[in-house]
Design a protein around this nucleic acid. Structure first.
Length: 563
RNA sequence: CGGGGCGUAGCGCAGCCUGGUAGCGCACUUGCUUCGGGAGCAAGGGGUCGUUGGUUCAAAUCCAAUCGCCCCGACCA
């Protein structure tokens, strides 16, 4: 492609609204433009990147027997009412009415449509298994779109669905997807972790997420370097390291004006790990006392999984139930239901005395009060791995893919049944699997860039080769450039030909910014000596070859880069 | 939805406090020079100052409302 005939609006300066590296570079390199919050136009270069990513996805999906289909963006409400999600999902679903006042919504995912289709077209165990996928726009009215293309309200998603006869079949389909996903992310040049994840309201028996490490990510994962434990911190368990416990006797001690763990520890000159943080929460059932170690954070989601929705108690509620201000409450002597974190099973601690200005020292959980035990703390870096006890590491990541075992939740409600060998009607066992192509592109940029710009992984670069004649007014140089451009195209090398009459500096800066894997520079000095320069963007390696060898050298360099 | 910030030319910004009818850099157009890492000189084009209402002789500037965008948090099927 000739630059002069392309829309490649590069920017010299960072756009004011862009924070994340990938966002800045995608705008500066002319890949995308923002139309509204969380709504983007993909310009030609951005589109080519998506096309490349999607091509990889299609190959790997087809390889595991996936069949591509396309489902509607616009859905009738009835379908979502049947599965209960019409009411279960709140503001995140775009809803509208058609001219006949019929309620509709814009698809945020496609389990309902798949179930509808399966209910009509699958009848016998002989029809199973099936794998159907699409690469389609999804719409979600995100509360807070952010980080450029990483969290948007309209986005492309490859979603696939497997239909099986039973759990064993689902397990097989699930594993195939897991392997296909690994190949896809590897081919796209991403570093990633496969982690256990929270199945959430998708329901079902198991889920994994594919996480690409990046500062721009919104999730965190806990990883063990010794064994293979890896999980989203949403559900990661860990073994906090126990402190040295002093040989305290049980006694009440005055702690005037010390209402926070920090103040109490400063006053008593002790490690926060020797205290218990007591939090009064309110559930639908009533008040609940939650206990974690003083240096730990309560993981509200873990707690919510045990007792349902919780909210912090108001000040007057704390006074009413425990007779003291928040800073002095504790589990001893209360009749409130109490949940204590597992890490409190051993040791002696300082806890609030339920008396303003006093704490109790030497409290032994399980002896001086009887809680229900559960894992309700937030895993931290340095905590022990729940499997092997080596140190856990917490890493910030971008979720680029997820896989869920759905089971029969949707097939039952949508009556997607089949007849087994015995002639009995059975619900189809489903799985659901997503990948965000734009997130792959953004994660690739987050992971592969430098001060100058993007460094595209070869498989998803918008073009393979950047042909850069230094001076378009030099006729000989231009002739050579045109000839090389023609040759490269004839050899099917994807080449972006910078035929602009710009000064060399401008062209070089843009070439670095766009980050195509290989740059071929035709300059006057090199021309005099009869050599053209090839430069690998990633390594900075340079090669000088006569014009006649450019094409073959370029092809061999590119094929090496692809490995 | 809570907290914070910002809306002035295509992009990045100043001007606002202390009202007097809009400016800088880049980009763009034309000419000359220059040509291996974001050129120089000269001459140009381009803005209802987010919107609406109010105060005032006079509003980018003060007041009110409203819309939009970004960041932190909550949410995320």
């Amino acid at each position: 492609m000739r630059w002069t005939r392309s829309l490649i609006p590069t920017l010299k300066e960072d756009p004011a609204e862009a924070e994340a590296v990938s966002h800045r570079l995608m705008v500066r390199a002319g890949l995308v433009r923002q139309l509204a919050a969380g709504i983007y136009v993909y310009l030609p270069l951005g589109q080519r990147v998506l096309d490349k990513v999607n091509a990889v996805i299609r190959e790997e999906m087809n390889r595991i027997g996936g069949q591509e289909i396309t489902m509607p963006v616009l859905h009738p409400a009835e379908l979502w009412q049947q599965t209960g999600r019409w009411s279960a999902i709140g503001d995140e679903m775009f809803r509208l009415k058609d001219r006949g006042k019929r309620e509709m919504c814009l698809g945020m995912t496609h389990e309902e449509v798949i179930g509808w289709l399966a209910a009509r077209e699958v009848r016998s165990y002989r029809d199973l298994p099936q794998t159907w996928y699409q690469i389609q726009v999804k719409l979600r009215d995100e509360a807070r779109p952010k980080s450029g293309v990483l969290r948007t309200r309209e986005f492309l998603m490859k979603d696939s669905y497997t239909l099986d006869r039973d759990e064993a079949g689902l397990e097989k389909s699930y594993q195939l997807h897991k392997e296909a996903y690994c190949r896809i992310f590897e081919r796209c040049g991403l570093a990633f972790h496969v982690v256990e994840s929270d199945p959430g309201i998708m329901g079902g028996a198991g889920a994994h997420e594919f996480m690409a490490p990046s500062e721009a990510g919104e999730d965190e994962v806990a990883l063990c370097d010794r064994c293979d434990y890896s999980a989203n911190v949403e559900l990661a368990s860990s073994r906090p390291r126990p402190p040295e416990f002093p040989d305290w006797n049980l006694e009440e001690i005055p702690t005037p004006n010390a209402g926070t763990i920090e103040q109490v520890c400063a006053l008593l000159r002790i490690d926060p790990a020797l205290t218990i943080k007591s939090l009064l929460l309110v559930t639908k059932e009533g008040p609940l006392l939650a206990l974690v170690r003083g240096d730990q954070q309560l993981h509200e989601k873990k707690l919510a999984m045990l007792v349902g929705e919780v909210r912090p108690a108001h000040r007057d509620e704390i006074l009413m139930h425990l007779g003291a201000e928040a800073g002095s409450i504790g589990p001893v002597g209360t009749t409130l239901p109490t949940i204590a974190d597992e890490s409190l099973r051993t040791g002696r601690y300082v806890v609030g005395a339920n008396k303003d200005g006093f704490h109790v020292r030497g409290v032994v959980p399980g002896t001086h009060f009887q809680p229900r035990w559960a894992d309700i703390h937030h895993a931290r870096s340095g905590d022990g791995c729940p499997r092997c006890d080596a140190d856990l590491r917490i890493e910030r990541v971008i979720e680029v893919g997820n896989i869920f075992k759905l089971g029969t939740k949707y097939s039952v409600s949508l009556k997607a049944m089949y007849l087994n060998e015995a002639g009995e009607e059975r619900p189809i066992v489903m799985g659901s699997y997503g990948i965000g192509p734009a997130r792959i592109a953004a994660a690739a940029i987050e992971q592969h860039h430098d001060q100058q710009g993007i460094i595209w992984p070869e498989a998803i670069a918008p073009y393979q080769l950047h042909l850069l004649p230094v001076n378009m007014r030099d006729e000989k140089m231009m002739e050579l450039a045109e000839a090389l451009y023609a040759q490269l195209q004839a050899e099917r090398v994807e080449v972006l030909y910078d035929d602009r009459a710009e000064r060399p500096g401008v062209k070089f800066k843009d070439a670095d910014l766009l980050g195509l894997p290989l740059r071929v520079t035709i300059g006057s000095h090199a021309l005099k000596e009869g050599v053209v320069e090839l430069k690998v963007r990633r390594t900075g390696e340079e090669f000088r070859v006569p014009p006649s060898e450019v094409v073959s050298k370029a092809k061999s360099l590119l094929s090496n880069l692809l490995k």
